[in-house]
């Protein structure tokens, strides 16, 4: 019931759908239903069709619907499992589940790897890291010389690329991320621990007993 283009109310969703999504994620049935309230809010902010478009994700994250951002593109692509240009509720739940405080660290590390493996080659390469650092500098209006940028990237690869083949494999990324847990701080959203009490306005609409 989540992937139709019709507007939906959580009450129109079958308990089996909520239960299935709860089963496929770290969330309880009530939490899935509470997250549906958040999803509805996000998915009607620009185009009221019950799907999150990139502009709507951008509006939620940047408070502005327009403007290119490499990281926004990557986050959107990872949420959009079906690669059809929109985020459906089911995809929203699957992706947010990785950000649950109780999700295994390996899942978080894997998600971050896929985020940074821009060209999906199975490796994070220096050109990709350079592109991402350039993007964050642009986003934050910081200016660094090419020389400094090269130094930062070289230092990072000296630390992360343990077999010195010039690229970071998933195994190397795993070891590197475990050594530098601050890199994963964005991968956990404490809000998700108990979304029904963190957002009391959502409770009104939850009616399924866990």
């Amino acid at each position: 019931c989540f992937d139709s283009r019709r507007r939906q109310s959580p009450r129109s969703c079958q308990h089996a759908d909520l239960a299935r999504l709860a089963h496929e994620s770290r969330f309880s049935v009530n939490e899935v239903e509470a997250l549906y309230e958040l999803f509805k809010k996000l998915s009607c902010s620009i185009i009221d069709d019950g799907l999150i478009h990139k502009e709507e994700l951008r509006l939620a994250l940047f408070q502005a619907p327009y403007g290119e951002n490499l990281f926004l593109d990557r986050v959107f692509d990872l949420f959009d499992e079906k690669k059809n240009g929109v985020i459906e509720f089911e995809e929203f739940i699957h992706a947010l589940s990785v950000f649950h405080p109780y999700a295994p660290i390996e899942e978080k590390i894997d998600f971050a790897f896929r985020l940074y493996d821009l060209r999906q080659t199975g490796f994070i390469e220096p050109e990709e890291v350079r592109e991402m650092v350039a993007a964050i500098l642009k986003e934050s209006d910081m200016i660094l010389s090419d020389e400094l940028l090269t130094m930062i990237i070289d230092k990072t690869f000296a630390d992360a690329d343990s077999d010195k083949d010039g690229k970071i494999s998933k195994e190397e990324w795993m070891a590197y991320a475990l050594k530098h847990p601050t890199l994963l701080k964005n991968m956990t959203l404490p809000y998700l621990k108990d979304v029904t009490t963190a957002f009391p306005s959502f409770i009104f609409n939850t009616e399924v007993e866990d």
């Binding site: 994250l61 951002n69 986050v75 940074y116 991402m132 930062i152 990237i153 890199l183 964005n186």
Partner: peptide, 25 residues
């Protein structure tokens, strides 16, 4: 000091990577 940071620390500062913003009213 950006030079003392690793590249991924810099990258993780992107607002797009802070999904906590989705929950802001």
């Amino acid at each position: 000091q950006p030079t003392s940071m690793n590249a991924f620390e810099l990258i993780s500062m992107s607002r797009a990577l802070d999904l906590g913003n989705l929950f802001e009213e």
